[in-house]
Every structure is written in C-alpha cells, then in structure tokens.
C-alpha cells in the first residue's frame, strides 16, 4: 500500500498556488489535509499526477468574524481548530457538535475544513453541514474573478464540485443565524468515528408566537448525495412544531425524500427506519434549543 509517484508543488502564497494550478490543469490536484486523499493514494485508488500542497500557505488558515456577525473560515483551517474555537462555539454550536463525529481526533488535527467540503464525499459530515447551513464558498482561480457559490450549488455529485481544476476553495463564510434559532445533529454509525448509516442535521427558527418560522434539514447517508428536505418546511413553516407535526415530517421525509442503499452494515429498510427516528430526535432538540434562544 504505497502511493504512485507524483509531482509535488509547495506554494507559499495563494497567488503561487493558483499559478501552479493553472499551469497543471487537469493533471493537478490540491492537497489540503490529505486525510482522505492520501489514504486513497495508499490504496492506489487515487493516482494524481501532481499535488499542489496548500499546507505552506499560512494565510489560508484562520477563523475571523465577518462584519455581518458570521464567521469566515480559511480553507486550510484544521477541523480540530474549528471544533475547539470559542468563536465558532459561540455563534454556531452545531459545528463542534458535528465535528466530534468526524473520524477520530488525530484525523481532525490534520484534516481541513475547506478540504473536507471540497472533497464532497457524500458520506462526509462537512459537505452536508455546509449545505444545511448554506455556507458561502469563495472560489479563486488564476486570472478569474473571485466567485461565491452557495454550498448546495457547490456539490454536484459524489466527490464532484463546480470547482475547476485551475481553481481552489479559498474561504467559507457562514452567515449569522437569526434569533431564536436552534440546531441539532443526529447520527447513527456502527462505531464512534465511523461512517454515518444515516444522519440528520436540522436548523430551525421560531417566530415570536413560537411558530416555526424557518427550517432547514439535511438527510445524509441515505441517498447518492445529501438531501435538503422540502417536506420539513412544507409541514412545519408557519405552524407549531408539535410532536405530531415533527412525526409527520419524519414519516413523509423518510418515505419519499430519501433513497438509502443496502450495504454491508445495514439494509435500505433499516436506514429508512433510523432516518425517521433521527429526524424526530434532531427536530425535537433543535426546536427545544430554539425555544431557549438557540
């Protein structure tokens, strides 16, 4: 299990990285944390011709408040740093909650926030969370104007994004959540740190009358790609998030919005069943948190 050879570039600035990527075109691949990529290379399932290592660009690693009250996270910020950042915990407690489910601590020390999103592994937690939080992704390319893509539009297939070979994800911005917003991530996996057999993340907002003002819910591991539920908003928005309403969302979403597969660790039916359970758990807790002010 040794990787094939490749050309190696270690740019020390974003500009230099973009130059190199432009030069390499389809032959080049960005090396961020490498925690998925290098494992795949060791199996020789990934054989990139050239790697552009972003680990020598300190300017890509930061967590900064935005003027709007959100956060901007540099693409090379380690997942561990996001997990343990007081800034993140204060604004987006969902993120550290999710981070604990991402592989094991040693992987989170090296794996990067932007790298995980750009890798677009449908079984990965961060692509789903970027979608449910509607994160704004800054894409840079040599000679191109900076472009911002909403996370749900970034990911177009399993391990596929709109990022061109000469481009890179440079920054992710998370806009502040409205008042009375609560969120909750729920996951079932065989073991701690393992792949999700099903997972649900919900972000809900209550209005002043305790009706559901907004709900975003993503269903993960139960389809080819993470699925943003439409049933949740159809059923809940404008209504009281009663137990019955939440159960109705769970029933309908699990019945019609997902397409789980049978694999070594569970049948499609089982995954559908736990999705239903996780939706109830996720929404119930998210609303409870919203009620407490988020």
């Amino acid at each position: 299990m040794k990787p094939v050879n490749f050309d190696y570039y270690a740019p020390t600035s974003v500009e230099e990285a973009l130059d190199t990527l432009a030069e390499l075109g389809y032959n080049g691949k960005v090396l961020a944390g490498g925690q998925s990529l290098i494992a795949a290379m060791n199996f020789r399932m990934a054989r990139p011709g050239a790697l552009v290592d972003l680990n020598n660009i300190p300017e890509l690693s930061y967590i900064k408040p935005t003027p709007e009250g959100g956060l901007a996270i540099g693409t090379m910020t380690r997942v561990y740093a996001v997990e343990h950042s007081p800034e993140v915990a204060k604004r987006f407690p969902l993120l550290p909650e999710v981070a604990k489910f991402i592989a094991h601590p040693q992987i989170r020390r090296r794996g990067t926030f932007g790298g995980a999103i750009a890798h677009a592994d449908p079984a990965g937690q961060l692509p789903s969370i970027s979608m449910v939080m509607n994160m704004k992704c800054l894409i840079k390319g040599k000679g191109k104007e900076d472009r911002w893509v909403d996370a749900p539009d970034l990911i177009i297939g399993p391990f596929m994004t709109v990022i061109e070979p000469d481009e890179m994800l440079a920054e992710v911005v998370i806009n502040p959540l409205p008042a009375r917003t609560g969120a909750r991530y729920e996951q079932v996996s065989r073991q701690n740190g393992g792949y999700a057999q099903a997972a649900v993340a919900s972000i809900v907002t209550l209005d002043e009358k305790d009706n559901c003002k907004d709900v975003r819910m993503i269903l993960m591991g139960v389809g080819e790609l993470p699925i943003l539920s439409t049933k949740a908003s159809e059923i809940l928005v404008g209504n009281k998030p009663t137990t019955e309403a939440i159960e109705a969302v769970a029933e309908e979403a699990a019945a019609s919005e997902i397409d789980p597969a049978t694999d070594l660790h569970g049948t499609a039916e089982y995954r559908r069943s736990i999705t239903r359970v996780l939706i109830v758990r996720s929404l119930t807790e998210a609303f409870a948190r919203a009620e407490k002010g988020g």
Binding site: I38, A39, N42, Y80, H104, R110
Partner: peptide, 25 residues
C-alpha cells in the same frame, strides 16, 4: 489508511497519522 493509529506521532505538537502525511510535507 489512517484507521489503526499505530503510526501516530506529534507533528508540531499535534497527534497525527504519519501514514497520511508525506515526508516532504
């Protein structure tokens, strides 16, 4: 492939898998 942890070392003080980092890095 980064699961077993036997190769864990400290990289600038952080525990990481040495099988998922290239020496050149």
């Amino acid at each position: 492939h980064g699961i077993c942890g036997a190769c864990t070392i400290l990289f600038d003080g952080e525990p990481v898998r040495s099988c998922l980092i290239f020496a050149v890095q």
